[in-house]
């Protein structure tokens, strides 16, 4: 899927650039985007290091297991493939909680930690597992209780009532999240995990 989207975006860019005469802009964009991508990734090193360290303490203290156990009914519904006592449960809860509170600095490292835990359960390490995709859709729907960035922008623009969008955002984000998770659950059977051919013993 991503193969076609990725190639499609660039191929369309080339064709449209030929008609619009925007080839120079496309070149600049390619170079700049590559640079931005590396800067974003390198910018993650600090917070990634911090939260992975704190998460290791939480694991050693048994907090991650505890958190997973506390929300087990919900987790079993969303991630039936993840065993009850697996550390992935706690990591998923921590990551989603950080997302909801809008702690974007903590949410990404914790989300990656949860993906790493899910990867330990994945029989095909280069292919996304069902719980990975479900977890991913919860993240791409950006469930957040307070849309703080937008409240700031509206207030700065002189809105008389910037907080009016809190309720509407909540409704929209939950509608999106429910739709995304349901789609993930319904679509998973149509995207089977392609098994690698077993290697023939010489």
């Amino acid at each position: 899927m991503l193969n076609y989207i990725w190639f499609g975006l660039m191929a369309i860019a080339l064709v449209v650039a030929a008609f619009n005469g925007t080839a120079a802009a496309v070149t600049t964009a390619a170079v700049d985007s590559a640079k931005t991508a590396v800067e974003i990734a390198l910018g993650l090193i600090g917070i990634m290091t911090l939260w992975l360290g704190i998460m290791r303490i939480a694991e050693a203290a048994g907090l991650v297991t505890l958190l997973g156990r506390a929300l087990r009914p919900l987790l079993r519904l969303l991630f039936p493939e993840v065993p009850a006592e697996h550390p992935a449960n706690g990591a998923i809860v921590m990551s989603l909680a950080a997302n909801m509170l809008g702690l974007s600095n903590a949410a990404t490292p914790l989300g990656i930690k949860a993906m790493e835990e899910l990867q330990t359960l994945n029989p095909e390490p280069e292919t996304a597992s069902n719980p990975m995709v479900t977890f991913m859709t919860l993240n791409t729907s950006g469930v957040q209780l307070i849309p703080s960035t937008m409240l700031g922008v509206l207030a700065a623009a002189g809105s008389r009532n910037p907080t009016a969008i809190i309720a509407t955002s909540l409704v929209a984000t939950f509608a999106g999240a429910v739709a995304a998770v349901l789609s993930a659950k319904l679509l998973q059977r149509f995207f089977p995990v392609a098994r690698r051919q077993p290697e023939v013993a010489q």
Partner: peptide, 28 residues
């Protein structure tokens, strides 16, 4: 999000992640 999360665990085949996420975005 898809690039960062799947990238961190080196998953290349994302299966239904993109369509499911886009349906969620459209509904939102």
């Amino acid at each position: 999000v898809i690039a960062v999360y799947f990238g961190a665990v080196s998953v290349k085949r994302t299966r239904h992640a993109v369509p499911a996420a886009l349906i969620g975005d459209l509904v939102a």
